[in-house]
Design a protein around this nucleic acid. Structure first.
Lengths: 187, 187
DNA sequence: GTCTATACGTGGATAGAC
DNA sequence: GTCTATCCACGTATAGAC
């Protein structure tokens, strides 16, 4: 029986959204309160550790979402290229075509880098390793697969920054489209 | 005759450094005050517009530094490949081998995105266009040159995020090293 | 579980003396 | 130009009633 008006998971999702948009320092309890519909005191009831615990819960939730939605295609059926293309579709959805920035990147550059370094590095490692596995399935040698996976994640992160700066998601779209072939290229 | 203990330019450089490390929201006047050695009141004497004016001055200063140090090699003598390699060296120095993150990226993701969208997009456009010109000198068609330049800047931004997240600058170093050949590749 | 009220620090910003 | 002192809004966080 749900004790909150919105379920806890839903609240955390909304909190994650606030951190994604405002970064850690910029995400005030007022904003979080409005976004969730929970008063300050209620927030502390659910997250006794305060803002830091909220951020941790948000990162955990995002991690699970990455695992469930975004990385599922990588482990599914189909040829490596098909899996990569399905993955790209999920990536595109996850970042809303380049309009939403990455909560991980936002945390890294806005006060969360020290506090959540383990969570952040863990999340990136999961992404990179999952990608790398697909590339090895495609016959790419281990070391090269690892580097290409890192590069792909980097390109996505960078494309989000550049697209947001330029106020135009075209660059993000081009990067996404090119990624599968780029990663599977011979040599 | 210098009216400050440190010259104004020097103060602005230190301010820029604070914004680079803490982002816009995270850069409190206390931190800025300590970093510059100027008291709160002094800061407001030099920057009547307050924190926002400080950030604007910092971005302007960074823009000039990019122009003078980082982009100079692109417009210098030598083959396009040589110019790109010298540029890479400057990029590496600018980001301290991947240890310092980019003030532009930090601003984008920490409260400065709305306030300084013109300055940020302008700075990125200058970077991209300068790179693009070199590629066209190397015979790369206009459209492709533009896209490769965008991609290069994106890769650098992304590599900074990834390296910072993983706590390891190796990825940043690999990306930098690969960039010249990547950009000058036939086709 | 949520609310009102409140404590207390820090944030940005200013006044006025020196 | 810099300092001390101060203002007020907002930040995080808590207490206690309902």
């Amino acid at each position: 029986m749900p004790a909150l008006k919105v379920t806890r998971e839903d609240a955390i999702r909304r909190i994650a959204d606030v951190f994604r948009r405002h970064g850690y320092d910029g995400a005030s309890l007022s904003i979080i309160s409005k976004a969730t519909g929970l008063g300050r005191a209620s927030l502390y009831h659910h997250f006794p550790g305060g803002k830091e615990e909220m951020a941790r819960a948000a990162l955990k939730s995002i991690g699970e979402q990455l695992e469930a939605d975004m990385l599922a295609p990588l482990r599914g059926n189909g040829s490596p290229r098909q899996r990569l293309q399905r993955w790209i579709r999920e990536v595109n959805r996850f970042y809303d075509g380049g309009c939403k920035n990455c909560i991980l990147g936002a945390m890294v550059l806005s006060g969360g880098s020290d506090r959540f370094s383990d969570e952040l590095s863990g999340a990136f490692r999961v992404l990179i390793n999952s990608l790398s596995k697909v590339l090895r399935d495609a016959g790419v040698p281990r070391g090269l697969a690892q580097r290409r996976a890192e590069s792909a994640i980097g390109q996505i992160q960078g494309a989000l920054v550049v697209s947001r700066s330029l106020g135009d998601v075209a660059h993000f779209q081009r990067v996404l489209k090119a990624l599968p072939s780029l990663m599977l290229t011979e040599k």
